[in-house]
Design a protein around this nucleic acid. Structure first.
Length: 247
DNA sequence: GCATTAACACGTA
DNA sequence: TACGTGTTAATGC
């Protein structure tokens, strides 16, 4: 709904800052070890990583696609701007998440913005290599298909979230989507996210998010920690359909 | 009534 | 010190 800090650099400068990945960073990429050795080698050879500053854009609406992106560490926000200049947030992208395959598949221009909510490490696979893997690796195809399917489910859930007015449910569902183990395997039981960042994603004020988090904590669904939170009951988080009974 | 913005104190990295 | 959190007061729909 709203935008955090302004962009400090463009994706062009990000392009200049990229470098090869370290072994630890490669380990944070969920699809890499699914590949046959030769395919994996080609992918690793092409993969580049760069640090994104808060507010910085990884991609902007209308720009042609160059990379398929993945979050190694940090937190990104996927959003779009309408004609009136208002920003609509679709989802957050926590560690382990890869995005842009739809655009890469069609070699189109981006239909949304991807912006770093905080300092993040972002990996990129060139779109040509992405297509090469699609043409050569069944394992890679399966990963991408699974990814597309899972995200379809997420966006259907996102429509539900948007139609609910109850802020407590919005927060619970937004959190649940960030804890999706298929799309975001880099997120363990602890998610590093500030209440302000969650407010941006849920489209609420920080104060109201704080209230919702405390309610969830009182129900033993999560535990609020400094600069993040821990999930105690993921099922409960996913199935939140009503709240405010306690108080 | 309920959520938002603004402002402040306090604790943590 | 800079940042994140918890809380309160004023304001708006």
């Amino acid at each position: 709904m709203s935008t955090p800090r302004t962009a400090s650099a463009t994706d062009a400068t990000l392009h200049q800052r990229r470098r090869p990945l370290t072994p630890a960073e490669l380990d944070a990429i969920p699809w890499l070890n699914l590949l046959a050795p030769a395919d994996r080698e080609r992918a690793v050879d092409d993969l580049r990583i760069a640090e994104a500053e808060p507010g910085e854009y990884m991609c902007r609406m209308g720009r042609p696609v160059t990379y398929w992106f993945g979050v190694i560490d940090g937190l990104l926000k996927m959003s779009s701007d309408n004609a009136e200049g208002q920003t609509m947030t679709f989802t957050g992208v926590p560690p382990g998440g890869w995005f842009g395959e739809g655009t890469a598949l069609k070699r189109e221009t981006y239909r949304y913005n991807i912006q770093a909510l905080r300092k993040s490490l972002v990996a990129g696979l060139h779109v040509d290599t992405f297509h090469w893997l699609l043409d050569h690796s069944i394992a890679f195809n399966r990963f991408v298909m699974n990814q597309l399917n899972e995200r379809l489910g997420q966006f259907i859930a996102a429509r539900e979230i948007d139609r609910m007015t109850n802020p407590d449910i919005r927060v619970a569902r937004s959190l649940a989507s960030l804890f999706n183990p298929v799309l975001y395997p880099g997120v363990g039981e602890v998610l590093r996210i500030t209440q302000q960042e969650l407010a941006y994603l849920a489209g609420l004020s920080r104060q109201r998010v704080n209230e919702a988090l405390n309610a969830l904590e009182a129900q033993a669904v999560i535990r609020v920690e400094y600069g993040g939170l821990r999930v105690l009951d993921l099922q409960a988080l996913r199935s939140k359909v009503f709240t405010r009974p306690l108080t």
